[in-house]
Simulated assay, not measured.
Amino acid sequence: MKALLLALPVAALALSACTTTPEQNTMLGAVGGAAAGYAVSSDSDKTKGALVGAAVGAVAGTFLGKTSTPGQCYYRNSAGQTYIAAC
Protein backbone atom coordinates (compact mmCIF):
# COMPACT_ATOMS: atom_id res chain seq x y z
CA MET A 1 0.00 0.00 0.00
CA LYS A 2 2.85 2.39 0.80
CA ALA A 3 4.33 1.77 -2.65
CA LEU A 4 1.06 2.86 -4.25
CA LEU A 5 0.91 6.01 -2.12
CA LEU A 6 4.49 6.78 -3.15
CA ALA A 7 3.85 6.18 -6.85
CA LEU A 8 0.76 8.38 -7.17
CA PRO A 9 2.39 11.77 -6.45
CA VAL A 10 5.40 10.88 -8.58
CA ALA A 11 3.15 9.92 -11.49
CA ALA A 12 1.08 13.09 -11.10
CA LEU A 13 4.23 15.20 -11.09
CA ALA A 14 5.56 13.49 -14.20
CA LEU A 15 2.32 13.98 -16.09
CA SER A 16 1.80 17.58 -15.06
CA ALA A 17 5.36 18.77 -15.63
CA CYS A 18 4.79 19.17 -19.38
CA THR A 19 2.43 22.12 -19.07
CA THR A 20 3.63 23.97 -15.99
CA THR A 21 5.94 26.86 -15.20
CA PRO A 22 9.15 26.33 -13.24
CA GLU A 23 7.50 27.75 -10.10
CA GLN A 24 4.61 25.32 -10.45
CA ASN A 25 7.08 22.46 -10.92
CA THR A 26 8.75 23.43 -7.64
CA MET A 27 5.41 23.51 -5.85
CA LEU A 28 4.27 20.21 -7.35
CA GLY A 29 7.58 18.63 -6.41
CA ALA A 30 7.23 19.85 -2.84
CA VAL A 31 3.66 18.56 -2.52
CA GLY A 32 4.52 15.21 -4.09
CA GLY A 33 7.65 14.88 -1.97
CA ALA A 34 5.74 15.70 1.21
CA ALA A 35 3.13 13.06 0.41
CA ALA A 36 5.81 10.49 -0.38
CA GLY A 37 7.83 11.36 2.73
CA TYR A 38 4.74 11.08 4.89
CA ALA A 39 3.76 7.75 3.32
CA VAL A 40 7.10 6.03 3.82
CA SER A 41 7.91 7.40 7.30
CA SER A 42 7.38 5.48 10.52
CA ASP A 43 4.45 6.45 12.72
CA SER A 44 6.63 8.49 15.05
CA ASP A 45 8.34 10.46 12.24
CA LYS A 46 5.48 11.38 9.87
CA THR A 47 6.02 15.14 10.20
CA LYS A 48 9.78 14.90 9.77
CA GLY A 49 9.32 12.60 6.76
CA ALA A 50 6.88 15.02 5.15
CA LEU A 51 9.22 17.99 5.69
CA VAL A 52 12.26 16.17 4.29
CA GLY A 53 10.18 14.88 1.37
CA ALA A 54 8.90 18.38 0.62
CA ALA A 55 12.43 19.79 0.57
CA VAL A 56 13.76 17.05 -1.69
CA GLY A 57 10.69 17.27 -3.94
CA ALA A 58 11.00 21.05 -4.27
CA VAL A 59 14.63 20.75 -5.33
CA ALA A 60 13.79 17.98 -7.79
CA GLY A 61 10.85 19.95 -9.20
CA THR A 62 13.04 23.00 -9.65
CA PHE A 63 15.98 21.30 -11.31
CA LEU A 64 14.08 18.74 -13.35
CA GLY A 65 11.14 20.84 -14.53
CA LYS A 66 10.14 20.42 -18.14
CA THR A 67 9.53 23.23 -20.61
CA SER A 68 6.81 23.30 -23.24
CA THR A 69 9.44 22.45 -25.88
CA PRO A 70 9.99 18.69 -26.27
CA GLY A 71 13.50 17.64 -25.32
CA GLN A 72 14.20 20.87 -23.39
CA CYS A 73 14.22 21.35 -19.60
CA TYR A 74 14.57 24.24 -17.18
CA TYR A 75 17.69 24.13 -15.02
CA ARG A 76 18.95 26.40 -12.27
CA ASN A 77 22.65 26.91 -11.55
CA SER A 78 24.27 27.55 -8.17
CA ALA A 79 23.89 31.31 -8.63
CA GLY A 80 20.11 30.92 -8.97
CA GLN A 81 19.97 31.70 -12.69
CA THR A 82 17.46 29.71 -14.72
CA TYR A 83 18.30 28.45 -18.20
CA ILE A 84 16.91 26.01 -20.77
CA ALA A 85 18.99 23.15 -22.17
CA ALA A 86 18.52 19.66 -23.58
CA CYS A 87 17.22 17.15 -21.06
Results as ranks from 00 to 15, higher is better:
M1Q: 06
M1V: 10
M1R: 06
K2T: 14
A3Q: 06
A3L: 14
L4S: 13
L6Y: 09
L6E: 04
L8F: 06
L8D: 00
P9A: 07
P9W: 06
V10W: 11
A11R: 06
L13I: 12
L13Q: 12
L15R: 12
S16P: 00
S16Y: 12
S16V: 08
C18T: 13
T19L: 12
T19M: 11
T20K: 11
T20Q: 13
T20I: 12
T20R: 12
P22F: 03
P22C: 02
E23A: 14
Q24K: 09
Q24T: 13
N25R: 10
N25V: 01
N25Y: 01
T26G: 00
M27L: 15
L28W: 11
L28Q: 09
L28H: 13
G29R: 04
G29M: 03
G29Y: 05
A30L: 04
A30G: 11
A30T: 02
G32R: 07
G32P: 05
G33Q: 03
A34N: 05
A34C: 05
G37D: 03
Y38Q: 00
Y38I: 00
Y38M: 04
A39F: 07
V40D: 00
V40G: 03
V40F: 14
S41V: 02
D43T: 09
D43W: 12
S44R: 14
S44G: 06
D45M: 13
K46W: 07
K46Q: 12
T47D: 05
T47F: 12
T47C: 01
K48E: 10
K48H: 06
K48C: 08
G49P: 01
A50E: 00
A50L: 04
A50I: 05
L51M: 12
L51N: 01
V52P: 00
V52F: 09
G53L: 01
G53Y: 03
G53V: 01
G53F: 03
A55W: 01
V56M: 13
V56A: 15
V56S: 09
V56F: 14
V56W: 08
V56N: 06
A58R: 07
A58H: 09
A58E: 06
A58Q: 09
V59P: 00
A60Y: 15
A60M: 12
A60E: 02
A60N: 10
G61S: 05
G61C: 07
T62S: 15
T62Y: 15
T62H: 14
F63G: 11
F63N: 10
F63V: 15
L64P: 00
L64A: 13
G65I: 05
G65Y: 08
G65K: 03
G65D: 03
K66R: 12
K66F: 11
T67F: 08
S68Y: 07
S68K: 13
S68E: 10
S68Q: 13
T69K: 12
G71H: 08
Q72D: 09
Q72W: 01
C73M: 08
Y75S: 10
R76N: 05
N77S: 02
N77C: 04
S78V: 14
S78T: 13
A79R: 04
A79F: 07
A79T: 08
G80T: 08
G80M: 11
G80N: 05
Q81I: 10
T82S: 10
Y83A: 08
I84M: 08
I84E: 13
A86C: 03
C87W: 06
C87L: 10
